[in-house]
Structure formats: structure tokens, C-alpha cells
């Protein structure tokens, strides 16, 4: 499928997609569209079906959880260059956290449902994408563990 919005060059520039074969890039671009969120807009809501993921090009996104007594609590922020969302990859395909634009956010939205189908059809493409997502998840896990260690707290946890 051709690249209706001409986003392949933009994607190719992004570190996440580096090294992909041109035909894979074109396939992915076929599921891509340019989006923007105003400051304060909800990008994703916890529990909703995760049909898309985002390549952030500009701005900062707060990954949030809503606690009844505390309201929305920001757990992490992601910004330009980061990937937002992997729940589209794995069942039950629902957002685990909410995401809100902290300021003006420009991103490339990728249709997860569409991409899933393409990955089933072309396992090479699937493998390339999964490799890259595994790295992102690993990095986030590492970062989250560091946050958990509460290193700056009074009695820092020791490894």
C-alpha cells in the first residue's frame, strides 16, 4: 500500500525506524497520519481500546494514572523522539495508562489495528517492529525501576 500522506521520509528520520527496509517503511507509512494535540488534550484514556501508538515529534506527554483520592498523577513524561503506547501490540489491546498533552504536541499516529494485520501477514516486518518495541519497553522498565528505588529518599533502597 502506498504512502498516502508522504510520511515515509519523516519516519525514516526517526531513530525508532532506523534500519528498516524501504518496503517495510512504506508499509508502516501506509498506516501513518500526522496528528497534533493542544495543551491539556487527552491523547489516550486508560481502559480505552488501543488502536494507535504515537511517534512524538514535538512537545511533552504526561503518562498518567487516576487515583480517586489524588486525581490524575503523572508517572512519567515522554517527549520528542519517544514512542508512546504499546498496548496495541498485545491483548487485550487496551491502554493501561492515560496520556495527556502537557503542551502543544505534534506526533505521527500509527494505526495499530492496521499494522497488526500487516505484521501477521509479513513476519519479517513483525519481527523488526517487535525488536524495537522490546527495546523501548526494556528502557521504560529500567527507568521505572530507578524511580521505584527512590534513590533520593531518606533511606535509599540499596540494590
Amino acid at each position: 500500500m502506498t504512502d498516502p500522506h508522504g510520511l515515509a521520509p519523516l519516519l525514516a528520520d526517526h531513530p525508532f525506524f532506523r534500519g528498516l527496509k524501504p518496503e517495510h517503511l512504506a508499509t508502516i507509512a501506509g498506516c501513518a497520519s500526522n496528528v497534533r494535540f493542544d495543551a491539556g488534550a487527552m491523547i489516550a484514556r486508560e481502559g480505552d481500546e488501543a488502536t494507535q501508538f504515537y511517534v512524538i515529534r514535538h512537545g511533552t506527554v504526561a503518562v498518567e494514572s487516576f487515583a480517586p483520592h489524588a486525581g490524575p498523577v503523572t508517572i512519567q513524561t515522554v517527549s520528542a523522539g519517544d514512542i508512546l503506547g504499546w498496548s496495541w501490540l498485545l491483548p487485550p489491546y487496551n491502554w493501561q495508562f492515560s496520556a495527556r498533552a502537557q503542551d502543544l504536541v505534534r506526533a505521527i499516529a500509527l494505526d495499530g489495528t492496521c499494522l497488526r494485520g500487516k505484521c501477521e501477514a509479513d513476519h519479517d516486518l513483525g519481527y523488526e517492529l517487535l525488536k524495537r518495541f522490546a527495546e523501548i519497553v526494556a528502557q521504560r522498565l529500567s527507568a521505572t525501576r530507578l524511580q521505584l528505588l527512590d534513590l533520593y529518599g531518606q533511606t535509599p533502597a540499596r540494590p
Binding site: 489524588a70 486525581g71 503523572t74 513524561t77 517527549s79 524511580q147
Partner: peptide, 13 residues
């Protein structure tokens, strides 16, 4: 590492 309600900056390590 941990945000408050009012914090509008970066959250993370």
C-alpha cells in the same frame, strides 16, 4: 521521580 498534582514539568529518571 514523583510528581505532585500541580507539577507540569518532566517526570522520570
Amino acid at each position: 521521580d514523583r510528581a505532585t498534582r500541580e507539577w507540569r514539568g518532566n517526570v522520570g529518571v
